[in-house]
């Protein structure tokens, strides 16, 4: 299981922006079991990179391949399989269903391809400190709480790669560490890779490789 980036550059970036980048216009291979840390200041294309890897957007030059299959050639159905079986993501902007409860939001992902039984939702929620919020509509939860919902949701499915796009932006250190711990455990369970993009280095993420975007 490999994610490969070949000479990748967003079409809306000019060539000068690749200068100094360790990702753009480089050939990179990410393997299962690796912990990749991508550090990048605002506006350097962190979310773009995550969206490209997840197949949400394709405004880039170069190639991204998953197991030697070019993402640009994926059909809508291929992406559905890719997102439910192989790659999971925590979006920076969370993307929850505002009118559904916390539990329903997580269950919508779990039922699609369940890696865990339904009881695991409560267990994880309690571990991250949102056990009492399961019945609340997600839109009335705080950002911090919503961020934890998004994290738990991403852990419900099997995956080879877990993409994290500033997953702790609304969490304090203690909650962040807690959540990181959970994600590391879950990644280990699947022998999966984590690709973690953030503004700065975070000490409690034991990365195996570090890139500056």
């Amino acid at each position: 299981m490999q994610l490969q980036l070949q000479q990748l550059l967003p079409v809306y970036f000019d060539e000068s922006q690749r200068n100094g980048s360790e990702v753009w216009r480089k050939d990179l291979t990410f393997n299962k079991g690796e912990y990749i840390k991508i550090v990048a200041p605002s506006g350097s294309g962190k979310s773009s990179l995550m969206h490209f890897l997840y197949g949400l957007r394709n405004e880039y030059n170069g190639n991204i391949t998953y197991n030697n299959n070019d993402l640009k050639k994926f059909t809508a159905e291929d992406f559905a399989v890719y997102r439910k079986d192989q790659v999971s993501i925590v979006f920076q902007d969370l993307r929850l269903f505002p009118e559904q409860t916390v539990y329903e939001n997580i269950e919508l992902k779990r039922q699609l391809n369940s890696f865990h039984p339904a009881e695991k939702i409560k267990e994880m929620a309690e571990r991250l400190g949102i056990g009492s919020k399961l019945k609340n509509k997600s839109r009335i939860c705080s950002y911090g709480e919503q961020q934890r919902v998004a994290i738990i949701r991403a852990l419900m499915q099997p995956f080879d790669f877990l993409l994290l796009d500033e997953p702790f932006s609304h969490l304090d250190d203690k909650n962040s560490q807690n959540a990181m711990q959970l994600m590391l455990e879950e990644a280990r369970l699947r022998n999966a890779a984590i690709i973690f993009a953030d503004l700065e280095r975070i000490d409690f993420f034991p990365y195996t490789r570090l890139f500056h975007l």
Binding site: L56, E77, A80, V81, R83, K84, L108, K109, L112, N113
Partner: peptide
């Protein structure tokens, strides 16, 4: 759109 993003098949 969010369902599709989460991996629901458009055909399904």
């Amino acid at each position: 759109q969010l369902l599709l993003m989460l991996g629901y098949s458009p055909n399904w």
